[in-house]
Design a protein around this nucleic acid. Sequence first.
RNA 1: GGCCCGUUCGUCUAGGGGUUAGGACGUUAGAUUUUCAUUCUAGAAACAGGGGUUCGAUUCCCCUACGGGCUACCA
Length: 506
Amino acid sequence: MSAPKVRVRFAPSPTGGLHLGGVRTVLFNYLFAKQHKGDFVLRIEDTDQSRYVESAEQYILDCLQWCGLTPDESPAVGGRFAPYRQSERKAIYREYAERLVAQGHAYYAFDTTEELDAKRKEIPNFQYGQLHRGDLRNSLSLKTAEVEHLLNDGVPHVIRIKIPEDESVRFHDMIRGDVSFETNLVDDKVLLKADGMPTYHLAVVVDDYLMKITHAFRGEEWLPSAPIHILLWRYLGWEADMPQWVHLPLILKPDGHGKLSKRDGARLGFPVFAMNWFDAKTDELTAGFRELGFLPEAFVNLLAMLGWNAGTDQEIFTLDELIANFSIERVSKAGAKFDFEKAKWYNAEWIKKLSAENLMPKVKAILEGKGIAVNADAYLIKVIDTVKDRCTLLPDFYQQAGYFFIVPAVYDLAAVKPKWTDTKTDFFSALITRFTEAPSWEAMHLEIEFKYLLEETGFKIGDVMLPLRIMLVGGKFGPHVFDIAALLGKEETINRINLALEAFAG
RNA sequence: GGCCCGUUCGUCUAGGGGUUAGGACGUUAGAUUUUCAUUCUAGAAACAGGGGUUCGAUUCCCCUACGGGCUACCA
């Protein structure tokens, strides 16, 4: 018997932006699938019509594409097991729910939300389960004739799983090892809602079975409901095909406590979503890593290292390296607090690692977004090469590269004016002459010209170097001054010295 | 409250019955760069507590504490 082809799925509900933790779940799914030459499926769990947000599905697709974690099967590209939207599979679930009822593993329940709320208030630690199900309105407590009557009258009802008494449900989790729950403490969860839609519990089991999922990755918050799923696999007669469970540790708030949430991003000043998310209902824009200037390579890399490591000192990984090295055994059990400082470090490393050619389109977009036209790509590439080591996020290229394209709008006058003298004006006038006559415009030669003039005039390098920098770039930043001048070219360099001289004199 | 999962520097983590408990981010100091950053060097910084088991426990077991998750006709 050969092992079945590895098939994994990411099954988000389209209710809003895609969270860091969600992307990491995708990533671990993807890495595992690709390592085993398996399939990665995207299934949209849109069974909650009240929380459904129309643009969310496309947004999720876009996020995955940006990250380079493209699904093999999805609502967008289809696949052998289509449809991949649970709302379009609605009819399938009822059949299985009814089968469970027929087998005695589930039952109809007619209680209204109000009635249940009242029960919860009345009885502390109320559970819809063995203790109370006899006192409620369901096909277990009601007479058969009455149930039939209610059903025929179309009275709204749900189907609940009948959790057995005094059993212990044990299962193996690839990260946590053996886990067990007592059924007496598990309640009779709703399987099929009154609107005919399945709940997550039924849908995930049915679809994982039908879609031949072999490994079920999900966040640790699902661990407590795992016994329901195990029971369902068993009652539906599919236990032999049950996937391996992989409950991933959670990503936690960096400061206080608890799961990282959208609110934390706004509160602490860092993104939580992969890409910008606009909520049309509240008119609220939530920042994304992409728009903040993260490279997808860095984003994927930093997410991989949140809860996993290769067992070596290597921290910078390409996607292919992650695929080659990933292993579930090396995923940690404990939740990880998200550290934005480290996240930025990953991005800086990736900017350094990637070639200027590779970075060019993104930098160009940053500059153009700031109204700086880039006409020559070859020039931009040279510029990127000289400044990329000083950039952490993509927008840093605006400050670090912008002045290669436009004359500084403002000068750091506070750094020059207090020490400015007429003799300095003379020095720079002489420098213009020397530069004008310079036979070569290479950085090294410009520096030599500069130093000759220093000797002639008796200035110290410290007196005039900073002013020259500010003339060319506007402030105290950027690469070596003569590298800048060399790239700027003779005409532009001289032009900027002239312009600055006027500004400094005023 | 109940149930489940977890616990090594501030953070992400390596390690594992006998180690100077390693790396990275951040931080501190210094070098380089007469800008800023990069880079380099050095430093501070951790096994939650209590019981066992053992010649020996941070590592194995138990308890406690703490943290987290779940406890919806949401996923």
